[in-house]
């Protein structure tokens, strides 16, 4: 009988070592099933793994990043090398058996190679724009939300100003003005212009979290304001910040393609997805659908995978989310 009446020790699918039932100390914890405590990163990873789309998204994006790093080294692309001029339908060195998988463009160059090598600029633009915008946005938003008053008013009016300026015109003008089609310039322009939304978000998070009881409790025990900002407020604002940052990244990838398509972005001698689209625009009506199709798909896939990743991260980083 004692055997059959044992408490639910053998449940929980064997997750974590089981701790023998202990005597309740406070009365209300009699029926607790003890699991080994996981730290919050392990828990976050566990929740992330359960999010299938996010997992697919991050694998896809990881692959894209890998391609972005490797492809330009393995299959260097030279726009002046027009195989079609010499032979009909040239093969990219090293890509040989696959180089015509996505067809060739008007110069006889491999579209596959352009898609692979073009990933670098998109990833660079996406990642570094996101880093710049996230640091600026978090910094400005934290300062505004944390100090409040005049500083807040000043910073937020500045943000309003930036948001009121038509983004596209500024980018086009700035790209032309500072430009020369340099990636770094483009990243700086995107980064410096895409933080205001995030700053507003961070500020709002600060304002609401500042009133939470656990922040008040930290103040009541004498924790310094700076530590409160970094240990209590920012970690709890992480989820929305991450989502917003991934959105900025996806947006920057699209923006690069768009600006390059308009010939205001990456210089025409570099290969990027936007440039590939731009080059194909005159030929689409001839039925050469593969010229824009594959670079376009590459843009779409990277944007979607980044968004899925952000979605999964938000859920994973929410410590209140139930198992």
């Amino acid at each position: 009988m004692a055997e059959t009446m044992r408490p639910a020790e053998t449940t929980e699918l064997g997750v974590g070592p089981l701790v023998p039932p202990q005597l309740p100390l406070a009365g209300e914890e009699d029926f607790e099933i003890q699991l080994e405590s996981l730290n919050q990163w392990q828990l976050a990873w566990r929740r992330f793994k359960r999010h299938r789309l996010a997992l697919i998204g991050s694998v896809a994006f990881g692959l894209i990043v890998l391609i972005a790093i490797v492809a330009p080294i393995l299959w260097p692309y030279d726009v002046t090398d027009i195989p079609g001029a010499k032979t009909y339908g040239g093969d990219a060195p090293g890509l040989a058996p696959l180089s015509r998988l996505f067809g060739t463009d008007f110069g006889g160059r491999s579209v596959l190679q352009q898609v692979l090598v073009g990933a670098r600029i998109s990833v660079e633009v996406g990642v570094f724009t996101m880093l710049i915008a996230a640091s600026l946005g978090v910094a400005v938003g934290s300062i505004a939300g944390y100090f409040g008053g005049m500083i807040d008013g000043f910073l937020m009016r500045f943000v309003d100003l930036l948001l009121a300026i038509p983004f596209l015109f500024v980018i086009l003008v700035a790209a032309r003005f500072f430009g020369g089609g340099d990636v770094v310039t483009l990243i700086l322009i995107f980064g410096l212009l895409s933080w205001p939304g995030l700053a507003r978000l961070v500020r709002a998070m600060f304002l609401s979290l500042r009133e939470m009881d656990f922040v008040q409790a930290a103040r009541a025990v004498g924790v310094s304001d700076l530590r409160i900002a970094f240990r209590h407020i920012l970690p709890n604002a992480l989820g929305p910040i991450v989502v917003s940052a991934t959105l900025i990244m996806a947006n920057a990838i699209v923006l690069e393609a768009f600006v390059s398509f308009l010939n205001f972005g990456i210089r025409a001698t570099d290969v990027s997805w936007g440039n590939a689209l731009s080059n194909s625009q005159g030929y689409l009506l001839n039925g050469n659908w593969w010229w824009p199709f594959f670079p376009g798909m590459a843009i779409a896939i990277s944007v979607i995978s980044v968004n899925f990743m952000g979605d999964g991260l938000r859920d994973a980083l929410d410590p209140r989310a139930r198992e």
Binding site: M212, F214, A217, A218, R231, H232, N236, P319, R320
Partner: peptide, 9 residues
Amino acid sequence: VGSLNPRMP
């Protein structure tokens, strides 16, 4: 619930 920081042990 609100008085304990969910991210701290």
